[in-house]
Amino acid sequence: MSALEQLWNGISPCMEPGVGDCVVWWDAWAVVAGASAVGIAIGALIVAWVGVGVTTASAFAVWKLGIAANAASSEATRIAAAEATRSGDESTRRAFREETEELLALIQVHGEVALALGIAKHVVHIIEGGGLGKQLFLDEERFRQAVFDDVSRLEFPMVASAMDRMHFLDRKVSGSLLRAVAVAKLAQETYRFHPVKGATPNYADVYESLSSLLPPVCLDLGVVMVACELAVKRMGISVSMFQSEGSSDLEQ
């Protein structure tokens, strides 16, 4: 009898041991028990290996994710550092360009400002004249015309050509320059404008207007002149062709 037949004969007739003619064939049941134990052991071994495989795979996946995360972090850091360097370099270049524009604009108007400042100071000195200037201005046509001629020379074509770069200048400097130009123009209109054609102007009013308008022009142009002298030094030009009063202190 084969082992399979022995197994079946031991199981089939005696599903309920001790009933009827049943005689339990314990050898067959031992085979069943042994086979079951082996199956259970193999199953447990398979489960164990599957668990090990899953754990190993999980650990490998975590390791790969860690490498990927580190690589991404390093790349992000590199990009951020490069961007910061590029931004810093661009900021430096932009600041250099803006400073250069400021210096060039000041040097461009330097001579014109120096000339206008000299004229304005000269006119103020003449019309004040220790009290004598007003009387001469009112009585002497030749004296009065000389004043008008000087005031008419307060023109600023170089300032006009540099107007698109005024925003590069210090606000006080650019504000002083533009105000000086505007007030000088207003001073010229005090003797050019006559409300009634052919009427004799009121030269006393003209005198008072020039006396009040020209001193502030001198002050504003003085502020710009100092900035122009500093621009010459900052550009590395050793000698300035134009010097305002007190500007020699800049060379110390």
Rank of each mutant, 00 (worst) to 15 (best):
S2W: 05
A3R: 15
L7W: 04
N9L: 14
G18A: 09
V19F: 09
V19Q: 03
D21E: 09
D21W: 15
D21Q: 12
W29M: 05
W29T: 02
W29V: 02
V31A: 05
G34K: 08
G34Y: 04
A35P: 00
G43H: 10
I46A: 06
V52Y: 15
G53H: 06
T55V: 07
A57C: 00
S58A: 08
A59H: 04
W63Q: 11
W63C: 09
K64W: 09
L65I: 02
L65D: 12
L65R: 15
N70Q: 15
S74K: 06
S74Y: 13
S74R: 11
A80W: 05
A81Q: 08
R86K: 11
S87V: 15
T92Q: 09
R93D: 05
R94L: 15
R97Q: 01
T100V: 00
L104C: 06
V109R: 06
V113W: 03
A116T: 02
A116G: 05
I119A: 02
I119R: 12
H122M: 05
H122V: 01
E128M: 11
G129R: 02
G129F: 02
G129L: 03
L132Y: 10
G133Q: 07
Q135R: 14
Q135M: 13
F137S: 03
L138Q: 04
D139Y: 14
F143P: 01
R153T: 11
F156Q: 13
V159R: 08
A160V: 15
D164C: 09
M166A: 14
R171E: 12
K172L: 13
K172W: 08
Q188C: 03
T190P: 01
Y191A: 03
R192I: 07
T200I: 10
N202G: 00
N202Q: 07
Y203K: 00
D205F: 08
V206D: 01
S212P: 01
C218H: 11
C218N: 08
V223M: 03
C228I: 04
E229V: 10
V232K: 06
G236F: 03
I237P: 12
F242A: 04
G246Y: 08
S247Q: 09
S247K: 01
D249K: 13
E251V: 07
